[in-house]
Simulated assay, not measured.
Amino acid sequence: MARALDGREAASMERRRRRIVRVATELLAERGVEGLSVDEVAVRAEVSRRTVFNYFHSTEELLIAVGNVLLGEAIDSLKVDGPPVADGTHADLLDDLAAMLRSIDLLDTMIRLTHILGPMGHQDARVLAVVRDTMLSVSDNLMTTARRRHPNVPELDVELLVSSLLGGLIVLHKRWSERSALADTPATRQLFDELFDRFIVQLRDGFAALG
């Protein structure tokens, strides 16, 4: 039976884990996925190779952790005020989620992820799996918020809508990347906003019929 950790030990382990993820993020930004070396992560983080694998059993897990940090920081910054919408419809839920996503600089985070992982449609199967698993992981925050804000909407419908939003964002970012070359300018941001608005209109037409 594993020994229970005291508060100081747990805090020390969490700091070490964050340092490993931070170093991995820096290396990915410098060299991309193919240049990620567990040995160099260990050296820069001042831990042993074995320690890295104690926290992350594979490079895929480490990549997912990096994605979770980048997307998670954005999602965690969502500010949702006000009481639950007791009589809200499916359309209200969609508008609420769309407003939350518009309130954060999601595009900046997605640009950073693209620079690290490579343009959508050009990665190997491993990276595409990382993107998928990262999106599934950060969706928990949105679903928790949506359930609290809209308790009368069935949980299945909440999960379907959140999954549709996140999956759609991957498609939108791929299209945006192809047309913008990842340039972050007022014009390319307006392009992303237009693509996002079009996506929400299409979702609303389908979800509005449910309530």
Score class of each variant (00 low, 15 high):
Leu117Phe: 15
Val130Asn: 03
Leu136Gln: 14
Gly121Cys: 03
His115Trp: 10
Asp157Trp: 01
Thr145Leu: 15
His115Gly: 08
Pro154Leu: 07
Leu160Cys: 05
Gln123Ile: 00
Ala146Asn: 01
Leu165Pro: 09
Val127Asn: 00
Leu172His: 06
Thr144Gly: 14
Met120Asp: 12
Asp157Glu: 13
Arg132Met: 05
Val162Lys: 04
Leu169Glu: 11
Leu113Val: 03
Leu142Gly: 02
Leu128Ala: 15
His122Thr: 13
Asp157Gln: 14
Ile116Pro: 03
Pro151Phe: 09
Pro154Thr: 04
Ile170Pro: 01
Ser164Trp: 03
Asp133Ile: 06
Thr144Lys: 13
Arg147Leu: 12
Lys174Asp: 11
Ser139Cys: 03
Glu159Asp: 11
Leu166Arg: 13
Leu165Phe: 14
Ser163Thr: 15
Leu136Glu: 13
His115Glu: 15
Val127Glu: 00
Ala146Asp: 00
Leu128Asn: 11
Asn152Tyr: 01
Ser164Leu: 10
Gly168Tyr: 13
Val131Arg: 15
Thr145Gln: 12
Asn141Arg: 15
Thr114Gln: 06
Leu172Asn: 02
Leu161Lys: 08
Val131Gly: 02
Leu169His: 11
His115Ser: 08
Thr144Val: 09
Ile116Phe: 01
Leu169Ser: 09
Ala125Lys: 10
Thr134Leu: 12
Met143Lys: 15
Leu169Asn: 11
Val138Gly: 09
Leu113Gly: 11
Met120Gly: 12
Val158Ala: 03
Met135Thr: 14
Leu161Arg: 05
Leu136Met: 14
Leu172Cys: 05
Glu159Gly: 10
Leu142His: 02
Met135Ser: 15
Pro154Ala: 05
